[in-house]
Design a protein around this nucleic acid. Structure first.
Lengths: 207, 207
DNA sequence: AAAATAAATGAACACTGTTTAAAAACTAAG
DNA sequence: CTTAGTTTTTAAACAGTGTTCATTTATTTT
């Protein structure tokens, strides 16, 4: 009965090859500009074969999407060792920003592009499953901060959204090339400069 | 010599009709899903004709893009009457957010989509001309705040970027449907709730 | 009315995502 | 070892896309 297992492995391997090819092309030329035929050419299969492994183009990029969240989550794991919630919150922001700037196309896919989300909200209920995990992590950290006495006068849910929005805003303006409006000599560092301003604001809100 | 002028007017009128049709379709089904043939059908012209008025599809949406900035700018005009820079900054944020939520597709085109920007940065130098105006307005307001003694310890450029990022982050998460992760009963108000949290943070930074 | 100019057309090109009938490859049973 | 049955892969086809261009149509000038 080892043959069925080997075939299963082969199938999984080709599935993985498709994903690797798709990711390569996507990082090279973007999602929209990458066609099924391009992917097929790269793995030297016919375009039709890809539809035996993925329902449609969206499903391919949704698979990559999930991989991205696993990456981000694994980067967050070091935070378990940070007991001070305020310190953890800041380190979390730094990890988030670094991940986005180091993997702009993946971040784009996860948090900016709209296609993958629509795909998920079609297969109803479990809307953007991956997103919940990361936001819950942020929310619980902020709750800890509030419980310890920080952010007096602020409310958990709205503040969590605000914090997420701030880091998302910075990196997405960068990724989608809206930073040309800031001073030319500051463009390379503006996201980190902005993050530091944000940190010093958070410090002031500590009490 | 009135004939040439009338022809000029006719040409301008058809150009405008293309833009109106393009905008209609775009608001209905999105930029990507709107084809030149769709636009041509709506104005009852052949697809080819459109290329007499616009170089390519990008140029059509770049024209709409410019119109969006004029809209946003005109909303900002009331701020000239607000002498207190801190008050002006907050009202500015509210106008920005309201504009984005009331015209999500236009905002998307202006600040999230990447195609129009690339088009501009190809026709070199004057990169994203429209964006400069709005950001300069924000920067000068924040400079006034600093000059009056607010935001002590913060720096003009990075803080301006941070403030912009915060409001942009909130509305773009909303527009690109990443708000499913916040509590279900808060989703409709979360952007305004977040904005209010932001305002109260700004107040704390006044001194 | 004829010539010149401008505008609009529709067909064509090279793409796209996706479907499907047929072919090839491989496995299992007799 | 051959035959039957599956699974995998393919190539062709469909309906769509942005864009170009020779040709036709309409208008203006001479």
């Amino acid at each position: 009965m080892g043959i069925a297992e080997r075939k299963e492995r082969d199938k999984e391997e080709l599935r993985e090859r498709i994903l690797v090819a798709a990711k390569t092309l996507f990082l090279e030329k973007g999602v929209e500009k990458t066609s099924i035929r391009n992917i097929a050419d790269l793995i030297e299969y016919s375009p039709g074969s890809i539809y035996h492994y993925f329902k449609d183009k969206n499903e391919i990029f949704h698979a990559l999407h999930q991989g991205g969240f696993q990456q981000l989550m694994s980067r967050m794991e070091v935070l378990a060792a940070v007991s001070n919630p305020m310190e953890r919150l800041k380190r979390m922001g730094a990890i988030y920003v670094d991940f986005a700037l180091e993997n702009p196309d993946m971040y784009d896919l996860m948090f900016i592009k709209d296609a993958p989300i629509l795909h998920v909200s079609n297969s109803n209920e479990e809307q953007w499953k991956e997103g919940f995990g990361t936001f819950n992590f942020l929310r619980s950290t902020i709750k800890e901060c509030i419980d310890v006495g920080h952010f007096r006068g602020h409310e958990e849910e709205a503040l969590s959204f605000l914090v997420w929005s701030t880091v998302h805003g910075m990196v997405s303006l960068r990724i989608r090339r809206r930073c040309e409006v800031v001073l030319a000599q500051r463009q390379d560092t503006i996201v980190h400069d902005g993050l530091n301003e944000f940190f010093s604001i958070l410090d002031r809100l500590s009490s």
